[in-house]
Write a protein that binds this DNA or RNA. Structure first.
Lengths: 146, 146
DNA sequence: TACATACCGGACAAATTTGTCCTTTAATTT
DNA sequence: AAATTAAAGGACAAATTTGTCCGGTATGTA
C-alpha cells in the first residue's frame, strides 16, 4: 500500500504526536526504538516531514522532534502520505494508464473509483493528533511486543 | 497500488483474453504494442502467469499466448495480482506492523479493514474474461491513444 | 568561550524492482 | 531433416527504494 518510508513516517509522526500531547519532545533514537524502524533512515524521513512543516524540530541539547498544538490538530494522515509518497497512489490509475479517466477509462476504472475515494477520505479525515490519542489510550499500537 | 509488473500483467491478461474470446492467439510483440509495455519485461511477467497456469502459451510458428475458455471464465484479477505481487498488499497492515491484528491493532486498523475488504472483494469477483469483454465492447481501454 | 547534544545534509552502499539481451527449447512448415 | 517461428530461461544492466555513515550546523550548558 504505502512505501516503507511512508509507513515509518506515519508511525513516527503518531509517536511524536503522542509524546507532544504530553509536553515531551522526543529524539531520533527514542523514536526509532519506539516504532521499530532503522534510525538513520527514519532521520531522513523526518527531515522531509520537517521541511514540509508537518513536524517541528529543535536542535541541540534537550532538542528533538515535536508536534505543535496546531500541527496536532490540523496535520492529516493524507498530508504525511503525500509529503513522502507523493499523490500518485491516491490518484493514479490502478492499471497504470497515464491518462485514465471517464473519457478513456481502464476496464476497472469505475470499480476502483469508490475504493480510492474512500481511501482518500479516510486519510483526509484523520489527524495525527487523533491517532496519537488512540495510541495513548491503549487502543492502538505503533509496534508489536510479545 | 500495484507494482509495474502487476499492472503490465493485468493489462496483458485482459488483452490476451479479449483476443482469445475471438479465437485469436497473440504473440508477445503484439501484446506489448497493444498494452504499451516494454516487450522483454512483459515476457518475464507472462512467463510467471503461464507457470501459475493463469495464462496458456504455445511455442513455435502461429504460437503465442491465449486464455482457454476455462481460464477466461474462472481466472480472477485477484489471482493475477497474487501471482505477481504476492498477497502482502492484500493482507498486510497499512502501517507496516508485522503482526497487526485485533489483538494489537495499529491506530488505523479498523478504519482500513473495510477498504481492504472491498478491494479484495473487487479483485475476487472480476474475471479476466469479464474485463476482456468490456474492452471488446469499447467500454474500457488498455492503452491510451489521442 | 568551550563543549556537548542532536538535528541537517550529502555521499555512499545494499536491496529490490524494472528492464534488456541472448541462447536454448519446442513446435510448425517446407 | 532443415529452417523458421515464438516462447522459456538465464545473465546482465539501469533505476528506484531502502538503508548507513559522517562531517556540518545550530542550540543549550558550564
Amino acid at each position: 500500500m504505502f512505501s516503507k518510508a511512508c509507513e515509518y513516517g506515519i508511525r513516527a509522526s503518531i509517536y511524536i504526536g503522542q509524546q507532544s500531547a504530553n509536553g515531551r519532545r522526543v529524539g531520533l533514537k527514542d523514536i526509532a526504538a519506539e516504532i521499530d524502524s532503522p534510525e538513520a533512515f527514519t532521520a531522513k524521513i523526518l527531515q522531509q516531514l520537517v521541511r514540509a512543516q508537518l513536524v517541528a524540530s529543535v536542535k541541540g541539547p534537550a532538542g528533538g522532534f515535536e508536534l505543535t498544538p496546531e500541527q496536532l490538530r490540523t496535520v492529516t494522515l493524507r498530508q504525511i502520505v503525500v509529503a513522502i509518497d507523493g499523490g500518485a497512489m491516491l490518484q493514479g490509475c490502478a492499471l497504470g494508464l497515464p491518462q485514465c479517466s471517464a473519457k478513456q477509462p481502464c476496464p476497472m476504472h469505475y470499480q476502483f473509483l469508490p475504493i480510492r475515494d474512500q481511501l482518500n477520505e479516510l486519510l483526509r479525515t484523520h489527524t495525527i493528533g487523533e491517532l496519537a490519542s488512540k495510541v495513548h489510550e491503549g487502543l492502538g499500537f505503533l509496534k508489536q511486543f510479545s
